[in-house]
Computed example of a mutant assay.
Amino acid sequence: MPYRQVVGSTDLGPPTDTLPVTTPRFGGPAELAAALDSVGYLPDTGLAAAAFLALRLRRPLFLEGDPGVGKTAFAQAMADVLDAELIRLQCYGGIDASQALYDWNFPRQILELRAAREAAGGTPDVTSLYTREFLVRRPILKAVETSPSVLLVDEIDRADDEFEALLLEVFENNSVSIPELGTIGGAVPPLVVLTSNRTREVHDALKRRCLYHWIDHPDLPREVEILRRRVDGLPDELAGQVAAAMRRLRSANLVKPPGVAEAIDLARAAVELGERSLTDTLADAALGTVAKHHDDRAEVRRLLAPAPLVASGSSAGPDLPDRVDLPDRVDLPDLPNRVDLPDRVDLPDRPRS
């Protein structure tokens, strides 16, 4: 049974969290989809096929889609079915190697240096400070050394171009180069899942090394089933109403259209409030679960529970009769059918000056 391998300097020592490789083998996309279904994630056919090939071909899987469609939840589900550790790297502007790969424990190094200086009475050897004992493993290095593992590089579109180049080097060799130690690699590469909300275009060089899949919003039946599974005690009628409301909202011109996560939050709020249908009361109380931008609040409120054309029991405005009877015919006075005009009108001659 293969274990993680460490390549490079011999003073690295054995890893402290060596795990055997126990990655399950799936016979095909349908079998993987069934496994994901068993842990509560309902993938479409394309996503199951892309994930299956990513496992077999040992390629990173690049997922794009609108926020809230289940990209991050997919990585967690894959970690569950693979019985692997999920290691998450949240990207942001300015992220670099010290946050993604590794760093050194500088406070501990300083304390060790002072202690060695006091004991030796001179200048100690600083090379002893750059050993695995003082190494701080960041998510990518930890994923390379851990088998099995799922590395989630979340929202790669928020990172800079230089960070994409850093990922290319790591994914190419499944190893991390540390000048002070050498090259640390693993026997089995982790399953890498990169997600993007498409706030910017990721470079083609990174996409070419990945399998690509676009995750769209689920159709109505699949979203209803997701709500049933994720929300305990949710009435079937309410699940259908929430899913239908989400479709109306996603087709509207909103600043931040709701995803599946917002649908789940709305359904959970309904259960907590004791509501069994999508009413005006629920729309008012749970508006914050769906409307995530101030400019969207009015439109979201209108589309969540559309108001009836005539409000029952309303006391606003003057009382009007239920019916106004109009006469069948209004007689007008007789008018002449024709007005006779003279054939010619003689005008006086223009006076001469």
Score class of each variant (00 low, 15 high):
Ala244Thr: 15
Asp265Gln: 05
Lys207Ile: 15
Arg352Pro: 04
Ile178Val: 14
Arg297Gln: 11
Gly27Pro: 03
Asn197Gln: 08
Ala239Cys: 06
Gly46Ile: 02
Leu278Gln: 03
Pro336Val: 10
Glu275Phe: 06
Leu254Ser: 12
Thr22Asn: 14
Gly93Ile: 03
Asp280Ser: 12
Tyr212Lys: 07
Glu201Gly: 07
Val39Gly: 10
Asp37Thr: 15
Asp322Ile: 06
Thr281Ile: 01
Gly182Tyr: 04
Val188Met: 09
Glu162Phe: 07
Leu227Phe: 02
Glu201Ile: 12
Arg329Leu: 11
His293Lys: 11
Asn105Gly: 01
Ile178Asn: 07
Asp96Phe: 04
Ile110Arg: 09
Leu63Gly: 03
Pro306Gly: 08
Pro348Tyr: 10
Phe134Lys: 07
Val126Trp: 06
Gly259Trp: 07
Leu166Asn: 01
Pro235Phe: 00
Val69Ala: 04
Glu164Asp: 12
Arg56Glu: 15
Ala54Pro: 00
Glu112Val: 00
Gly70His: 02
Glu162Gly: 15
Leu341Pro: 04
Arg222Val: 13
Pro342Arg: 13
Arg58Phe: 05
Asn337Met: 04
Pro179Trp: 03
Gly288Leu: 13
Pro67Trp: 10
Gly317Asn: 08
Ser98Phe: 01
Thr16Ser: 13
Glu272Phe: 14
Asn173Leu: 04
Leu89Gly: 09
Tyr92Arg: 14
Arg88Leu: 01
Thr127Trp: 07
Ala143Phe: 02
Pro218Arg: 03
Phe134Trp: 05
Thr22Asp: 14
Val192Asn: 01
Ser251Phe: 10
Leu168Tyr: 01
Leu166Ile: 11
Leu61Ile: 12
Asp232Ser: 15
Thr45Gly: 00
Leu191Cys: 02
Ala143Gln: 02
Leu82Arg: 08
Pro221Ile: 01
Arg323Ala: 15
Ala97Met: 00
Leu335His: 07
Arg352Glu: 14
Gln109Glu: 10
Pro189Trp: 01
Arg350Glu: 13
Pro67Gly: 10
Ser314Phe: 03
Glu85Phe: 00
Thr281Gly: 13
Asp96Lys: 08
Leu220Phe: 06
Pro221Lys: 07
Ala311Val: 11
Tyr92Gly: 08
Ser149His: 03
Val188His: 14
